[in-house]
Design a protein around this nucleic acid. Structure first.
Lengths: 159, 159
DNA sequence: GGTGAAACTTCTAATAA
DNA sequence: TTATTAGAAGTTTCACC
């Protein structure tokens, strides 16, 4: 995985766009004392380099009735089945992320569901996958996402 | 937490914007056979209702040199310290999400770091918080995020 | 590399249906 | 609630530093 060198301007452009993808390039330009054309060129360059991979809307899923979050640890009968099971898990809607992990579990994933009843259905789908020995669930009582500030590219730059 | 009723058009607008926030309203309008003005009004309504909470750029942090992901389970000396410790954890950069959970751990969080050395520093910062008894780390060997399709609002609509 | 201005596209709000 | 429309605003290109 190559490591790209971004300069201060690139990082600041990224930071502004991470906070709000719809901030006008003209505003970015004004703030950084460069031209809108330059912002455009730099963004394009970062897109071409694969550093910017897309953009997404933040949606409040709780407001849509999906307020149940849990983490599910998966034990396999045999580690050779890891890739296969990971793919099956990824096919289940409401599983938002899945990892192959070291430690206690073979696979570890996060689910977002409507309520406990709905979560049960999702967890049973995982349990039913061939090769899954058993699962262990941790229910989230409260999720606290780090400020966007912390997810910003600035903290990922070399100091 | 109130549950909002979105119609089919709203969900499709959300879906298109979740996949790419910069898709022109005129394109959305064309695809859904409505006017751009209508798209504008509906998006504004969802923003006002708090369903749309913002937008963000997707960045490939691996390309920026941050390829280490781990989950850290935290045991507290006393559950009364939960909120306090959660806040301290949230102050640590590179902790991207933190949860209060049922089950084995009191708090459970995800970190993104540069390498094992850097991750060690982050984990030690968690260990050093007052009230933390000990931690348990699971290293992610492979992260597999569900297609955007699965995170889309469509699957969160009532059937 | 960056700029600034022109040409083009999109947004937005008011009006009308 | 939706459509139309026109002026405002944003994006993108390009000749020139």
């Amino acid at each position: 995985m190559a490591k790209f060198k971004l300069d201060e301007i690139d990082h600041q452009i990224l930071d502004m766009l991470i906070q709000n993808t719809r901030v006008p390039f003209t505003d970015i330009a004004k703030k950084l004392l460069i031209s809108a054309g330059t912002v455009h060129v730099r963004v394009k360059k970062m897109e071409d380099a694969g550093i910017i991979t897309g953009s997404s809307l933040m949606v409040d899923y709780e407001k849509l009735g999906y307020s149940f979050i849990a983490y599910v640890g998966v034990f396999l009968q045999n580690t050779s089945q890891t890739q296969f099971v990971l793919e099956r898990i990824n096919e289940i809607p409401f599983v938002t992320v899945a990892h192959i992990t070291t430690g206690k579990f073979n696979i570890f994933c996060k689910i977002r569901a409507k309520d406990t009843q709905h979560a049960k259905e999702v967890i049973f789908m995982i349990d039913d996958i061939d090769g899954v020995y058993r699962t262990e669930t941790m229910i989230s009582l409260e999720e606290s996402i780090n400020d966007k500030k912390r997810l910003m590219s600035s903290i990922f730059r070399d100091i």
